[in-house]
């Protein structure tokens, strides 16, 4: 509910910004984005307003109950994985697709493991390296898609 309100305000901002930015464009290229921007603002304001209604409060409470039933989500895992994924993307061109993917793969396996049995973890790493190598070869050699090479491979 509070989330709805934040999202609605952010989207109102996006819409207003889009409208103002489009002022600079010619009549033909301004029309469509401005119409859409107005729609976005109106709909977001509606969402904002309706988040105060009793019905939406009830729905939010229900959803809360629903989500708390299950297991606690792995917030640490998600945040760390996100970090790895962002780093992976940034390093793609620097290190090359193979190297960066293998490193990220290992990092994710370590973050996501729930067992301490090394053999299992090793198996994941080995499988990952084989899959990455296989796909990189498939793309580079067979399909001739020039994946980023970077300094390494």
């Amino acid at each position: 509910m509070i989330k709805d309100r934040i999202a609605a305000l952010v989207l109102v901002g996006v819409g207003v910004f889009a409208w103002i930015e489009a002022q600079r464009y010619g009549p033909m290229s301004r029309l469509f984005p401005q119409v859409v921007a107005v729609a976005l603002v109106v709909l977001s304001l509606f969402l904002f307003a309706s988040s105060f209604s009793a019905r939406s409060r009830r729905a939010a409470a229900e959803r809360q109950a629903e989500s708390s039933e299950g297991e606690r989500p792995d917030v640490r895992g998600v945040l760390l994985s996100l970090l790895v994924i962002v780093a992976w993307t940034l390093l793609l061109e620097v290190l090359g697709v193979w190297t960066s993917s293998v490193i990220a793969f290992v990092a994710l396996v370590i973050i996501l493991r729930s067992t301490e049995r090394a053999a299992v973890v090793w198996r994941s790493v080995a499988l990952g390296v084989v899959l990455v190598t296989g796909f990189v070869l498939l793309f580079r050699v067979v399909l001739r898609v020039p994946l980023p090479e970077g300094v390494l491979w």
Binding site: A104, F105, L112, L127, F135
Partner: peptide
Amino acid sequence: TVLAPLVFFLSVI
């Protein structure tokens, strides 16, 4: 542990 990184890897390429 394998699926998540693999899917992301495929997404990237």
